[in-house]
């Protein structure tokens, strides 16, 4: 069974003027297969930085700590190597790639992840099935990746990829943002199907508790000022719903 270990991770972001701004200040977190961890925190607390730095986005510089997937040094890998090792990042703002059809993109990604091309005989059905389950018209397979997709369609497309690529660890960065209630339910069901397989660890980054009504976390971590300040079970999410982040913020120096 797979395990993702994040140890004392420090990360800075590169600013346009070349200077660096520290964002993560020592994050420790272990995500095992079949577990769902929710990371909750206010805007600007570094939740997305955690997601993107694990995936290897070049904007972020690791200044200390370790990320290990089944003992292998993730930080030494290129972005594509991380994905092939079993990491998946569902992005908050999926990128448009003109000229590349969804079908071609997904087949290429599946081939890269699996190390061999999917069987033609079953792949079409698998693709259509995944899209249909996420409420995406299979005709979208012929459209260019994310081009002209609504916010909700982009998020559904991310979860289609999650289902098809079957990662060891999936990081979902604010997948719930911008979704109406029906889309939230459909997307949550997609995440739950992957969880039910029991092989995938899920790191669910969210601002709000509403997705947690559909995707029940095993652990909840409160993230403030670049680190985890409190941890607990699902009941912690309910407490946050009632009390907000205010008391953590005042503890961290107060809201500006």
């Amino acid at each position: 069974m797979s395990v993702l270990e994040i140890r004392d991770l420090h990360v800075s972001v590169k600013l346009p003027d070349g200077s660096r701004k520290p964002i993560l200040a020592g994050v420790d977190l272990t995500v095992g297969a079949g577990q769902t961890h929710a990371i909750m925190g206010p805007n600007g607390s570094g939740k997305s930085t955690l997601a993107y730095s694990i995936a290897g986005h070049p904007k972020y510089q690791i200044t200390g700590g370790q990320v290990l997937l089944d003992g292998a040094d993730v930080l030494a890998m290129t972005v594509d190597e991380r994905a092939r090792a079993g990491l998946f990042l569902a992005m908050q703002y999926p990128v448009e790639v003109p000229g590349v059809s969804v079908a071609n993109f997904l087949r290429t990604a599946k081939t890269a992840i699996d190390g061999e091309a999917p069987k033609l005989r079953t792949w079409g059905k698998e693709l259509t099935g995944a899209m249909t389950r996420l409420g995406m018209d299979p005709a979208f397979a012929q459209r260019n990746v994310n081009e002209g997709f609504s916010g909700g369609e982009k998020k559904r497309h991310e979860i289609v990829q999650l289902e098809l690529l079957k990662p060891k660890v999936a990081i979902l960065d604010e997948t719930d943002s911008g979704l109406d209630i029906d889309a939230l339910r459909v997307v949550s069901e997609g995440v739950n199907r992957v969880r039910e397989q029991g092989d995938t660890g899920v790191l669910l980054i969210t601002h709000y508790t509403r997705i947690l009504r559909y995707v029940k976390p095993d652990f909840v971590h409160v993230f403030v000022a670049g680190r985890i300040v409190e941890e607990g079970g699902p009941e912690l999410a309910e407490k946050l719903e009632a009390e907000g982040y205010e008391r953590y913020l005042s503890g961290a120096g107060g809201r500006a």
Binding site: H57, R82, A83, V97, A112
Partner: peptide, 11 residues
């Protein structure tokens, strides 16, 4: 765009 494609395992 490059990051998005690479994050799906594509070299």
């Amino acid at each position: 765009q490059l990051f998005y494609l690479m994050a799906r395992g594509i070299p």
